[in-house]
């Protein structure tokens, strides 16, 4: 049973054809790494899955329900799809705890006590329990990104989308974020991540999707694909990043 399904998805920005007929099927528990050159449409793909961008043709379903950018749909979708951004996008005027509790209290209408318990548990999971009352700007980039993960997890999403979430971090901070992701993968959370971390894609991911010029150029089991690429484009890409 597929959790996320894309069928012949086309996306245009004006005349610019960005996604050219994407077919993709993701099952619960999979860890899918999307790789590809800058501009190949990876972010756009993720943003279509969670309704941040409108697509023009084809269909996307998450958990069997159609994805649209309609406001109400979008909010229902938010209950099953979590997203983490390259730039964290924490809310600067709220403490770490308030950041994590916000959506559970006002979207899920949880009681404050319940939301706080969830928030503390999620922060514990990402190793930041003691930062509950700190403000985001006092944290390192790696810590901020882990808070963002906790914030997404607090909504207990069915699938977590990550768009180059380690790209804005100093190299020495990348590890702590990847470790959290690896832990989540082990717990069986469905992850779809755009990443340049090839080692992570190979060792933790179950599948790699290579995008090129707005198409899924090649995909397959992560270890097989990365050690034995079929197309010249993927060979070239792997050569360039390694």
């Amino acid at each position: 049973m597929s959790l996320v399904n894309l069928h012949q998805v086309h996306k245009y920005y004006g005349d610019h054809h960005v996604l050219k007929g994407i077919d993709l099927d993701i099952k619960a528990g999979e860890v899918v790494s999307i790789i590809g050159k800058s501009g190949s449409g990876k972010s756009t793909l993720l943003r279509c899955i969670n309704g941040l961008e409108q697509y023009q043709q084809g269909g996307i379903t998450v958990d069997g329900k159609e994805v649209t950018t309609d406001d109400i749909q979008m909010r229902r979708l938010a209950l099953s799809v979590g997203m983490i951004f390259q730039n964290f996008n924490l809310f600067p005027h709220m403490t770490v705890g308030e950041n994590v509790m916000l959506a559970p209290t006002i979207v899920l209408k949880k009681s404050k006590a319940e939301a706080e318990a969830t928030a503390r548990a999620m922060l514990e999971k990402v190793g930041l329990a003691e930062k509950f009352d700190s403000f985001p700007e006092k944290l390192s980039g790696g810590q901020q990104q882990r808070v963002a993960i906790a914030r997404a997890l607090a909504m207990s999403p069915k699938v977590l989308l990550c768009d180059e979430i380690t790209s804005a971090l100093d190299p020495e901070l990348v590890g702590e974020v990847l470790k959290v992701l690896e832990q989540l993968a082990k717990e069986g959370i469905t992850l779809v991540l755009v990443t340049h971390e090839m080692n992570f894609a190979r060792d933790v991911g179950s599948r790699v999707v290579f995008m090129h010029q707005g198409k899924v150029w090649e995909q397959g089991d992560s270890k097989t694909l990365l050690s034995n690429p079929q197309t010249d484009e993927l060979k070239q890409f792997i050569g360039a990043v390694l």
Partner: peptide, 22 residues
């Protein structure tokens, strides 16, 4: 930044909540 709006949106906040809270 647009990112703040999007972060609120993907957390399921409606427009009014996004404005007042975020």
């Amino acid at each position: 930044s647009k990112g703040q709006m999007e972060a609120a949106k993907v957390l399921g906040l409606n427009f009014r909540q996004t404005l007042t809270r975020v």
